[in-house]
Simulated assay, not measured.
Amino acid sequence: MRKKIVAGNWKMNLTLEEAKTLHKDINEALTTTNSKCDVYHFAPSIYLNSLIGNDQVVKTGAQNGYPAKNGAFTGEVSMQQLSGIGTQAVLIGHSERRQIFNESASFLKEKVDSALEEDLKIFFCCGESLEQRESGKFKETVIAQLKNSLFHLNSTDFSKIIIAYEPIWAIGTGKTASPEQANQMHKSIREAIAHAYTQEIAEKTSILYGGSCKPSNADELLNQPDIDGGLIGGASLKASDFLEIISTYN
């Protein structure tokens, strides 16, 4: 059975006190609930030290990390530094990092290798733009992102990767990815993994959906056969909404 995962990406939101309260509320709620999925909070790096705890249900992740171990990279935080404070996971390849910060496939590949060296769980994001979706080249686009930054890994290392599919064209555009469209892309990703590795590895890889999942559509989306959870944005900032999405797997 593939692991079901619900992860909240807080992006550049919340004050420290708001972050601590939200993290505490989710942890407390889950200690009394028999949740059948893993739960992660991807918080701003400056908050991680205040959120990490060994006795917590919710795992902590960083939204970004730099591949070099140390050096003259003002403002950056290394994978080694993240691991050193007990961070458990890191997002790599998020559409905002690709688009706003122009992170290339080769740079993301460096990040993947560095994170694996530090034993960080990798949530690797991939997805296509509206233009790429409408051109009909969306599958090729997404699979190329995997090939260029992930498929150099051996089977053992690849088994440590979680994929998060983000249909960028369905976020803030007024267009909507149907559950069937989302599942079809997840299926295509799984087929690409099977081609690059084995069917067994593909079947064991958790692939999350990251396209405007919220309480109103979570049940229909997250229970598609090839969708193994969600990378949640705005809905993860409100405890009641995030817990309702998590309850999809209870």
Results as ranks from 00 to 15, higher is better:
residue 3 K to C: 14
residue 5 I to E: 06
residue 9 N to E: 14
residue 9 N to R: 06
residue 11 K to P: 05
residue 11 K to S: 04
residue 13 N to H: 15
residue 14 L to V: 04
residue 15 T to R: 03
residue 17 E to Q: 14
residue 19 A to N: 06
residue 23 H to N: 15
residue 27 N to E: 02
residue 31 T to A: 05
residue 32 T to G: 08
residue 32 T to K: 15
residue 33 T to C: 12
residue 39 V to M: 03
residue 40 Y to I: 09
residue 49 N to D: 13
residue 50 S to D: 15
residue 52 I to T: 10
residue 58 V to I: 11
residue 58 V to N: 01
residue 58 V to R: 02
residue 61 G to Y: 11
residue 62 A to M: 10
residue 63 Q to C: 09
residue 63 Q to K: 10
residue 63 Q to W: 08
residue 70 N to H: 08
residue 70 N to Y: 15
residue 71 G to D: 11
residue 73 F to C: 14
residue 78 S to K: 03
residue 79 M to Y: 12
residue 81 Q to V: 11
residue 83 S to T: 03
residue 86 G to Q: 01
residue 91 L to S: 08
residue 92 I to H: 08
residue 97 R to W: 00
residue 99 Q to T: 06
residue 100 I to R: 13
residue 102 N to F: 12
residue 104 S to E: 06
residue 105 A to H: 14
residue 109 K to H: 12
residue 109 K to N: 11
residue 110 E to R: 12
residue 111 K to L: 07
residue 113 D to S: 09
residue 114 S to Y: 07
residue 115 A to G: 06
residue 118 E to M: 07
residue 120 L to T: 11
residue 120 L to V: 05
residue 122 I to S: 10
residue 127 G to M: 10
residue 128 E to T: 12
residue 130 L to Y: 05
residue 133 R to L: 15
residue 134 E to P: 08
residue 135 S to P: 01
residue 135 S to I: 00
residue 138 F to I: 10
residue 142 V to F: 09
residue 144 A to D: 14
residue 146 L to N: 00
residue 152 H to L: 00
residue 152 H to W: 08
residue 153 L to S: 10
residue 153 L to I: 07
residue 155 S to R: 02
residue 161 I to P: 02
residue 161 I to K: 01
residue 161 I to W: 06
residue 166 E to Y: 02
residue 167 P to L: 14
residue 176 T to V: 03
residue 176 T to H: 08
residue 182 A to G: 00
residue 182 A to Q: 04
residue 182 A to E: 08
residue 183 N to E: 07
residue 184 Q to V: 11
residue 184 Q to N: 14
residue 184 Q to E: 15
residue 185 M to S: 05
residue 195 H to G: 12
residue 196 A to K: 14
residue 202 A to L: 02
residue 202 A to G: 07
residue 202 A to Y: 02
residue 204 K to Y: 11
residue 206 S to F: 02
residue 208 L to H: 00
residue 215 P to L: 00
residue 219 D to T: 01
residue 219 D to Y: 10
residue 223 N to M: 05
residue 225 P to G: 02
residue 227 I to S: 11
residue 232 I to P: 00
residue 232 I to S: 10
residue 237 L to E: 05
residue 239 A to L: 12
residue 240 S to W: 04
residue 244 E to D: 13
residue 246 I to G: 04
residue 247 S to I: 06
residue 248 T to H: 05
residue 250 N to L: 11
